[in-house]
Each structure stands twice: as C-alpha cells, then as structure tokens.
Amino acid sequence: MKIRPEILDHWPEVRERLPADFDLEATARLRGAFTRVREIKNAETLLRLALAYGGLGMSLRETCAWAEVGGIARLSDPSLLERLCKAAPWLGDIVAALIAEQAKAPAGRFAGYRLRVLDGTSICHPGADRTTWRLHVGYDLATAQVDQLELTDIHGGENLQRLTYAPGDIVLADRYYARPRDLRPVIDAGADFIVRTGWNSLRLLQTNGEPFDLFAALAAQQEQEGEVQVRVHEGMTGTPPPLVLRLIVRRKDPQQAQAEQERLLKDARKRGKKPDPRSLEAAKYILLLTSLPTATFAPADILTLYRFRWQIELAFKRFKSLAGLDSLPAKKPELARAWLYARLIVAIIAEQIAGQVPDSPPSGCGYPTG
C-alpha cells in the first residue's frame, strides 16, 4: 500500500488519529517549533505543512504552492525550510506519542511472555554510498505493531539497549546484537533474550571460567538440535556474578549449509580474500544464545520462537515501502530529520487506517538469515 495524497485532504480524520492527550500547541511551543504567529498561524498548520513535505514527498516549493492554493498558509521556500528544521524534535515527539499509544494495546503472550523483535534499518541521503541515518525499531509480534522506535545518525549503533524492557519480555535479535555488555541489562530488567550469534561474536567460556572450544562442541553434537551451558566473558571490571547462558545449536540441512558456504565464498572472492575455514564450518549451524530457563523452554521451543523474527523483516519492507524512507531528498541534517519524522507519522497513521498486519510467513520461510 502506498501513501495517498488524499490523506491530507481529510485532515480531520488524520487529526483524530493523533493521541488525544498530546497537545500540539503546547508541545510545539515547548520544543521551540512554534514561537510566534506569522506566516503559519498555529501548530496544527505547521504539522500539516510538515506532513505535506515529508509525509507525501512534496518539494519545498510544491508544499508552499499547495498551502497557498488551499488557503492553509502563505510562505516562501526558505521560510518553510527554516520552520521545518526547527520542528524536527517536535515531530519526533509526535512519532513517540503515536508509538506509545499503540503500545497500550494488550500485549500478546507466549506461556506468560511477551514476544518482541528488535532490528535496525539504514537510510541514505541523496548521493550517499553508505548509511546516513539508522532507524531502530521494536516490534510486538502479537499485536503486529511497532512498539518502540528511535532515529539516530550513522553513529547510532545497533544494540539491545535501544529498547526499554519489562518483566516477561522476550526480545529476538540477530547476530549484530550479540555483544557482551548489552546482554546483562536485559536480564536485570526482568526480561529475556534469544540472540543469534556467530562463532566469533562473543568470547565464550565454560561455566567454570575455563576456555570453551565451540568447534569441539559442534563436532560432538549427535542430534540435529542440542544445547550447552556457556559463560559469557563480559570484559567488565569488578566482580559481577558470571553471566551463564544457554547456547542452542541446530545443524542445518545440507542444502541450507551449502547455500551459506557459497555465499561466504562469493563474498570472499569479491574482497580478494580466502574465507576463514572456521566460518565455513560454522555455516553448517544455527547458533542461538538465550537466557530463557531450560525447565520452561526446550531447545526446540527456542528455535521455534526465533523463527518468528522473519515478521519484522516483512514489517520493515512494508513500512519502508509505505513510508518511502528510501527516497530521502534532504542532505541538511535538521531538514532530513524533519522529513523522516513526518514520513513516519503518515506511515503509522496510514497503517492504522489500513489495518494491515502479516498473519503468516512467506512460502518456504524458515530461519531468518540474520
């Protein structure tokens, strides 16, 4: 589904979708987005202009022309640019309020737990050959809704601390989130995690602190699925209690293993290098690190839960298509941030109106690649 221009022709309906307790005028003045009445008469008008520019992809000139024809406001391109740059933090507050409103929906539970997925997606400004912005998204699998969102620049790395956790949460994340100092805070918040890991993502020890030989453990595994207790070397000063977790191992089917090995070989050829033999061996397995208790969750349950992570990949595709985040036109950081937030506001509201949620995995979908 694409965002339609008509969404702004029905402003009262769009306005109703904003949280009832979010005071546009007061918050805009507090954030410095709206300080005095000149070309723009109130905060609501400022929001309509922002949504026309960012949400619908109009240029600054087109937005000014649209506003004048519609009797909404009369201002020049430079004036609109200045106002939008100042409005970026306020637009971010509106995004946060919309997300918070969605999060009020009763959370779905799996054996008393709430399943959430954390992932990030990259956004580039025009002409950029690498990431300029990064959108970090928390996704509730039961409600099929984004329940937390954060926009950062290129320096905002992916880590588990991008989410706020509550007791009973289970967060699912790919191998980019397997970082030693990010795991313990999740447990301290009363939550649990299932994080995919690679053979060299973490320094793993035996529970007694002795070195752990991962490849010996993989070779010794007789069944397709198994587990072993490991201790994570966190590199922390002081004497916190050892972080002992479960390493869940699943041997891939021969076809899956071969496909991953071929991908590694192809990538190595592009870089003019030879792949590490350990990477080729590890490609035969799925490795998951979890804090969930053995008594409640068998290895097969952990592997089943992790399969649900595909849903956020579909959500990203749908959300990025709906919001058109890949078409960022602005290079100026303040204007780019305003454009992105406006785009997200329209995408969230449009998705609420459409009521689109994924209800089944794509054909043949197994474990996510991340």
Rank of each mutant, 00 (worst) to 15 (best):
A111D: 11
R114P: 04
V346H: 00
L30P: 00
T294V: 10
I349C: 04
Q161E: 10
L84W: 02
Q222D: 14
T152A: 11
D21W: 07
K2F: 14
P299V: 04
D23A: 12
I40R: 03
P106R: 03
T27Q: 11
A173H: 05
Y177D: 03
T304W: 03
P242Q: 05
M236N: 12
R184N: 10
C124T: 15
A97D: 06
M58V: 03
Q352M: 11
A216G: 13
T27V: 02
A105C: 00
Y341N: 09
R175K: 14
W11E: 07
I40V: 15
L247R: 00
L115R: 04
R36P: 05
L118Q: 09
L245H: 07
L172F: 13
A257G: 09
I123S: 01
I3Q: 11
A315F: 12
I123F: 05
Q206G: 11
E281D: 08
L322A: 00
I348H: 03
L91W: 05
A52L: 13
G370Q: 09
R175L: 12
A220H: 11
G355C: 06
R36Y: 00
Y177M: 07
D276T: 03
F316M: 05
W133A: 02
L204C: 04
K317R: 15
K252M: 15
L303G: 03
A300P: 00
L51H: 04
P5I: 11
M1F: 06
S279D: 13
L84S: 02
L141M: 09
K332Q: 13
L49I: 06
A257H: 02
A216N: 08
G70R: 14
A88Q: 01
R246P: 07
Q356L: 15
T237C: 11
R36M: 07
K332N: 08
R109P: 01
T294E: 10
R307Q: 13
T27H: 09
P275N: 08
F308S: 04
F308E: 06
V171R: 05
L245V: 10
I3Y: 02
A191L: 06
S76A: 12
L202R: 06
V137Y: 00
I194D: 10
V117A: 15
G112M: 12
N200V: 13
G70K: 11
R184S: 11
F297C: 02
E25M: 09
K317N: 04
P19G: 01
F110V: 15
K266H: 05
N200T: 14
G272L: 06
L47P: 02
V249C: 13
T63L: 00
I353L: 07
E351C: 01
N159F: 06
M236R: 15
L314R: 07
